[in-house]
Amino acid sequence: MVFAPAPRLTVTIDQPSDEVEIHLHPGGQGVWQARMITSLGTPVTLCAALGGEIGKVLEPLLSSEGVDLKVIHRESSSGGYVHDNRSAEPAEIADVPGHPLSRHELDELYNLALGEGLRARVSVLSGPGEPSLVPDDIYRRLTADLGANGSLVVADLSGGHLRAVLESGVHFLKISHEELIREGRADDDSDEELTRALYELHASGAESVVVSHAERPSLALVDGQVFEVSMPRLQVADPHGAGDSMTAGVAAVLAAGGDLATAIRTGTAAGALNVTRHGYGTGRPDSIAGLVDRVRLTPLGSGRQDRLTPDQLAGRTARP
């Protein structure tokens, strides 16, 4: 189950040849994750709230993604944006975040996601483009209720939504090094700082964590050990969307009963392949499979830090 509370309509203007093209797609973190999970052959139930004229356009577009779409219809409008990609530097023409969900709409969406999540082995919690659209407490409660009833909760969140899922305890967390620095969880992007942040996130409620690191190898905390996750570098066509594809690859493998190491390797391969393409959450499954064996998880360092338990390290390095 992918919880995508506020999908957006994306309108892009492009000109790959002589003629101008206009493309309409459903967008947002949860949509891109669901697209990649589906590409990897795992069935997806997508839970979302849609409303207004934009919502009427989004619903058939989402259904065409090959997901089992479950929707609550809201009175206020969904959001969207228009981008002009005809130049080397894409221009934003308009960006409408949408309206916050009402209390009744939140109750309906919560019940929908909870019911579908309880039938799924894995539940992926994604965030809205504008955090204020959905309260933090929805994520806290959903994480607690799903986790307590056997669903493996995978999260790719930041800010208050991240703090909310950590409070309830999350099975797997993906976060970028930029988010760690922006939120004050790491002072810089050194391995030492990111490793400390990994252990602090574990101590706060994340069972396993991966920190993506742009073009550098990711870092993963699995069973108390930090690993460097590396693979051959590929030429980049579009750097956007790699993190969402990574989260999706992890979720797809876990949903099929795979182990976490294989899940991280698959997620890394999916994210790496995504940047060779134009389009978020896209990639040929056979190409991803061909890259998985090239991903390496190598224990990071051999110093005293590696001999400490996660709780010991978190206790010694936690911020006051």
Rank of each mutant, 00 (worst) to 15 (best):
L109V: 08
A113H: 07
L152Q: 15
Y110H: 12
H202W: 13
E116F: 04
G147A: 07
E116L: 07
S190Q: 07
S126H: 01
D187L: 14
R182C: 08
H161R: 13
L125P: 00
D84K: 08
E92H: 05
D187Y: 10
L180A: 13
Y110T: 08
I181L: 12
R196D: 12
G115Y: 07
V209R: 02
S176N: 15
R119F: 02
E183C: 12
R141T: 14
V170M: 03
L112D: 12
S123L: 02
R182S: 15
L133Y: 09
E207K: 14
L118T: 04
G147S: 13
A148Y: 03
P97F: 00
S87F: 03
V209A: 03
V211G: 03
P97A: 02
A120F: 09
K174T: 14
E167N: 05
S87N: 09
G129R: 03
I93A: 06
A155F: 08
L106Y: 00
D95S: 14
G205M: 01
L109G: 02
R185G: 07
R163A: 15
E178W: 09
D136H: 12
H161T: 10
A155I: 11
S102V: 04
R121P: 06
P97K: 01
R121S: 14
E89P: 01
D189T: 07
N111E: 14
E200H: 10
L180P: 08
D137E: 15
N149G: 09
S204P: 00
G147C: 07
R86S: 04
E105L: 03
Y81C: 05
V96D: 11
R163P: 03
P90G: 00
S132G: 12
E167L: 01
V134G: 11
P97C: 02
T143H: 05
S87C: 05
R141G: 11
I181N: 07
L198D: 01
Y81D: 02
Y81V: 02
L180S: 10
G159T: 13
I181S: 09
A203H: 14
E200T: 04
L194A: 05
G129D: 07
Y139I: 10
R163M: 13
H83Y: 12
D136Q: 14
E105K: 05
L162E: 11
A203E: 10
S123D: 02
S168Q: 02
V211Y: 03
S123H: 06
V153A: 11
G127M: 04
